[in-house]
Write a protein that binds this DNA or RNA. Structure first.
Length: 841
DNA sequence: AGCACGCCGACT
DNA sequence: GTCGGCGTGCTC
């Protein structure tokens, strides 16, 4: 039991991203709530559901007048206390409000309204021909008898009677006014996410129904006072129910002669009962995971290689110790890491502790989830963004109720409410998608290690191309390093050829996309009915359009980037901004100097697809990038089709390089290894090395030896050279030396601050106010750089200035940043603080 | 993030 | 005059 606070104050996390913990008083009539319980609290004009994080002291600022909790919704922890304190710690580390943390944000409530009887009468009195005011439109919307969420009202108003502009309508004020007039009632319910179970309506026959059916007597009609005999449909329905004693799911009536309406009428006469039953969705029914390869069934059966066996033994020993430790499994692509994870997870599960597995993106790599599914069956839960809110929540509640031993999920699954964790696995730990690029900007991998530490569990990070951070930790002895250097069945790594595109341009002109070597290799592989992956990490048809006379490119009006050319309907080309989605037709004459010499330059995946079709007539070519997978699950479908051999050549961005296993791919072509190398980002070389190594690893996973062809303008660049030789260690040493010289992570802790403002001058001004505050911090504990215009100085119409904080001791820097932000509350909304950034662009 | 408040231009 | 669009500040 928590010690009783003499002042009876609790710290509460509310689902408001900008807010930190708030303090509330527990009124005398209420028990003191335990940590992790949900509570209903007043916040401004709202009432919200929050989570108790712990006891609180009286706020330092005496001016805040504390409010009472309205209600306590759980007698026991709703979120495990371990998850609550983990999330609070993470919010502190990443300098964001606790309210933004996933486990707190998942608990929400919602205001809903409906018309009262008076309100309905008044709505009916206003005929359709009458003049529509906002007030009458609103009342009409609320008069259908059901509860309507206030947040959807503005949208409904906008679409209800065409001309009305619903945006900006003070819906809440209007509803409150109507409430005061007794025309509308308002309720505040726990919603959606936490109550988002899909329910099904199940009909069962009542005793009255049974006797009515048997004796065929007339039955009272509700409301009318009359009696009527059962109709034939109603008799049929009752008869059907006698055959299904467990009840009949009304949704299953679709396509049959009976309709739900018949049951509804019977229910009104008391002959049938209809109950709502909670129904849990199976995430494997949804298309995102339906495409899991069937060959995964073989996993867990065949023998491990010596290396796999040794790695498993070491990890198993660490896990069995029951104390915290972190292990970095550095295994080359195709070395069979997944198999080791699976067996390790089974061991830990059998010892009575639970397992959490993080993966970068399930939609792109369904194989791992499928393998775990076949091993753990319904003791496994899946958590990822492709699930609907309802599906996700079913899974979340199954975990919370302890019905699950193993969770496989993306980033936010690190907060899954698992009890007694014994093992956390982070697959492809270097992957950038572990970092959330919006608040809260946490890294799921780092949170996983932290959680392991707090719960005395083993953390296993795995990658063929570990992040500099993790490998550095391993070489300093903070992590245990386990290497897997051989591929399963001793399959050799691909032969890599580098093509110097300068020579190719000299020979074939500057407009060349596919070198002769790549085109010929593709044709050769295709005639042998093998498959090809072609990587270019840049979308679109062309990179820019510029005027040959005045050389000015066509820029996005909202962002400081030039428009990318995309192929639209009927082959027309449009300019599009990849940052704000602005789109425009490309003029045939220069908007600046009117010269009719507009020229395209650079190329992206669309152009590559076209060139591949031209170079390989008859080949089945498909493209996988963000533009082709708008629809949910489309990536999985396309990858599955490629896996079945229905596509010969798959062109795509980095999506095609993630951990897929396509045994028939024998050739990988990289159209330009240089995309990203020129970026002003300290991770540019690391990302290039990782991408090249990963994509080269896709070749030759079957019987046939693989081949990779890398086109570049910089064949001597160290990330390209080391990637060709698949020499991680050499790359690591060289890159670490660069990071040390430049004082970049992992040798210092880096925090990036970006200040947004209507003009660059204003952004610079506000940024320097914060920087000055930071520089006043005592001692040379950290270094502040900037402010300077950010690399994307304008984005979505806002101007941006940036600054950096570099510190050996992150704690000191964190405290200083928090203090500087607190000193400038007016800038809070416009400042982005990114602790341990993945990218500084 | 909401929500309230207050300021300003554009209409009845 | 007042409506309603938007910037600013606050939420224990």
């Amino acid at each position: 039991l928590p010690p009783v606070s003499p002042s009876r104050l609790v710290a509460v996390a509310v689902p408001v991203p900008a807010l930190d913990l708030l303090t509330y008083r527990v009124p005398d009539g209420l028990e003191f709530p335990p940590c992790g319980a949900r509570v209903l609290v007043p916040l401004g004009a709202r009432r919200l559901t929050g989570i108790v994080v712990g006891l609180a002291d009286a706020p330092a600022d005496a001016r805040v007048d504390l409010k009472n909790l309205i209600d306590i919704l759980d007698a026991e922890a709703f979120l495990p206390a371990s998850v609550v304190s983990l999330a609070a710690w993470v919010a502190e580390y990443y300098a964001c409000g606790v309210g933004a943390m996933p486990p707190f944000a998942w608990v929400e409530s919602e205001l809903r309204a409906r018309a009262t009887a008076d309100g309905r009468r008044q709505a009916e009195a206003t005929g359709p021909g009458a003049k529509r005011t906002l007030r009458t439109s609103l009342l009409a919307l609320l008069a259908d008898g059901g509860w309507t969420p206030l947040r959807s009202l503005a949208y409904q108003l906008e679409h209800a009677d065409g001309s009305r502009r619903g945006r900006g309508v003070p819906v809440r004020a209007l509803v409150r006014l109507l409430e005061q007039q007794g025309l509308v009632e308002v309720e505040d319910v726990l919603t959606g996410r936490s109550a988002a179970f899909r329910t099904r309506r199940v009909a069962a026959i009542t005793a009255a129904g049974q006797s009515a059916l048997e004796r065929s007597v007339p039955v009272d009609e509700p409301g009318t006072g009359r009696s009527r005999a059962l109709g034939s449909k109603q008799r049929e329905a009752l008869a059907a129910l006698t055959e299904t004693p467990a009840g009949l799911d009304l949704a299953s009536l679709r396509g049959r002669a009976l309709t739900a309406d018949v049951f509804q009428r019977l229910s009104a006469r008391g002959l049938v009962s209809i109950r709502e039953e909670r129904q849990e969705r199976d995430p494997f029914e949804s298309d995102a995971t339906a495409t899991m390869p069937a060959e995964t069934a073989g996993h867990g059966r065949h023998l491990l290689t010596g290396e796999q066996e040794a790695t498993l033994a070491r990890l198993g020993a660490m896990a069995a110790s029951g104390t915290f430790g972190t292990s970095l499994v550095h295994g080359v692509t195709g070395s069979g890491k997944t198999e080791v994870y699976l067996r390790l997870a089974a061991r830990v599960r059998d010892s009575g502790r639970s397992v959490l597995v993080l993966v970068p993106e399930i939609g792109l790599t369904p194989a791992l989830a499928g393998i775990f599914r076949s091993q753990f069956g319904d003791r496994l839960a899946i958590q990822h963004s492709g699930l609907s809110d309802g599906e996700r929540h079913d899974q979340w509640h199954r975990i919370r109720r302890g019905e699950v031993d193993v969770v496989v999920g993306t980033r936010s699954a690190v907060f899954a409410p698992l009890a007694s964790l014994g093992l956390l696995i982070v697959d492809e730990e270097h992957d950038g998608s572990y970092k959330q690029e919006e608040a809260p900007r946490y890294n799921g991998r780092d949170v996983a290690v932290l959680r392991a530490q707090r719960e005395g569990a083993l953390a296993v990070l795995g990658s063929a191309t570990p992040s500099l951070e993790s490998y550095h930790n391993a070489s300093r002895g903070r992590y245990q390093l386990l290497a897997m250097e051989k591929r399963v069945l001793d399959r050799p790594l691909a032969d890599v050829t580098v093509v110097n595109m300068r020579d190719e341009y000299a020979r074939s002109g500057p407009d060349l996309v596919l070198s002769q070597a790549l085109a010929e290799a593709m044709r050769a592989r295709l005639t042998r009915r093998e498959q090809v992956l072609v990587l270019l990490n840049r979308r679109g048809y062309a990179t820019t359009v510029f005027c040959r006379q005045c050389t000015s490119p066509i820029d996005c009006p909202n962002c400081s980037v030039s428009l990318t050319i995309h192929t639209g309907a009927r082959g027309t080309h449009r300019g599009r901004c990849h940052y704000c989605n602005y789109s425009a037709t490309i003029p045939s004459t220069c908007p600046r100097c009117a010269a009719p010499y507009m020229e395209r330059s650079g190329f992206g995946t669309e152009r590559v697809e076209q060139e591949v079709r031209a170079a390989c007539p008859g080949a089945r070519v498909a493209r996988l990038d963000r533009d082709t997978i708008r629809r949910r699950g489309a990536a999985g479908t396309l990858l599955a089709a490629f896996g079945r051999g229905e596509v010969d050549v798959l062109v795509g961005t980095q999506m095609i390089a993630k951990g897929h296993d396509f045994p028939r791919v024998t050739l990988v072509g990289v159209v330009s290894a240089d995309v990203g190398l020129g970026l002003a980002d300290f991770r540019a070389a690391e990302r290039t090395f990782q991408l090249l190594t990963q994509v080269v690893g896709r070749a030759g996973r079957g019987e046939e030896r693989g081949e990779a062809i890398i086109q570049t303008l910089f064949p001597d660049h160290y990330s390209i050279q080391h990637a060709c030789r698949q020499d991680y260690r050499a790359f690591f040493e060289e890159e670490l030396a660069f990071r040390r010289a430049m004082r970049y992570p992992p040798l210092v802790g880096l925090t990036n601050g970006i200040v947004r403002a209507p003009s660059l001058a204003a952004a610079m001004h506000d940024a320097s106010a914060i920087v000055q505050h930071l520089q006043r911090a005592p001692g040379p504990a950290f270094q502040v750089l900037g402010p300077a215009p950010a690399p994307f100085v304008k984005l979505r119409g806002e101007h941006r200035a940036q600054f950096f904080v570099k510190a050996a001791n992150r704690g000191v820097a964190r405290a200083a940043i928090r203090e500087a932000l607190d000193a400038h509350p007016d800038l809070r909304r416009r400042v982005i603080i990114d602790v341990d950034p993945m990218s500084v662009l």
